[in-house]
């Protein structure tokens, strides 16, 4: 059942992105950024956690999960360190994703050449 939920949720989010891309003059970069913010927003009332429980991987794969992790980290930081904790904790949970993107990009770019 989980696979079906994952498929439906991720598919729906991508469909939404495609509709925005096709009907407005926004670029893919704009759409991705909007979705991160949407994911962050949905985490405010712990809504996104419900999505993760329901769809599992399907809610973690789209970029909306990035926004969710940002807010989660910020709130955790705020609980530990007070107001400044918002800044301290924000990148805590997303650090693995960001660092892996940087590290992979760097090392692969040393080995490979762009083709076409």
């Amino acid at each position: 059942m989980n696979y079906l939920h994952a498929f439906l949720f991720a598919g729906f989010v991508c469909l939404l992105g495609q509709i925005i891309l096709d009907n407005t003059k926004l670029t893919p970069g704009h759409v991705t950024t909007i979705f991160v913010v949407v994911g962050a927003f949905l985490d405010i009332f712990n809504l996104y956690d419900q999505f993760i429980l329901w769809a599992g991987g399907g809610a973690l794969v789209p970029i909306t999960s990035f926004g969710h992790l940002l807010i989660h980290g910020a709130m955790q930081g705020a609980m530990d360190y007070g107001f400044m904790g918002l800044c301290v904790g924000m990148l805590n949970l997303t650090s693995s994703g960001i660092m892996s993107a940087i590290v992979f990009s760097f090392f692969f770019a040393l080995i490979f050449r762009p083709k076409d």
């Binding site: 994952a6 498929f7 991720a10 469909l15 495609q18 509709i19 809610a59 794969v61």
Partner: peptide
């Protein structure tokens, strides 16, 4: 632009990605 085709393709591939993510998680 072929909005309908684009939408369907986006839905299907996005869904597959989600299912693949779920598979990796499991």
């Amino acid at each position: 632009e072929d909005r309908l085709t684009n939408g369907v393709i986006a839905f299907l591939t996005g869904g597959l990605m989600g299912a693949f993510g779920e598979f990796l998680l499991q």
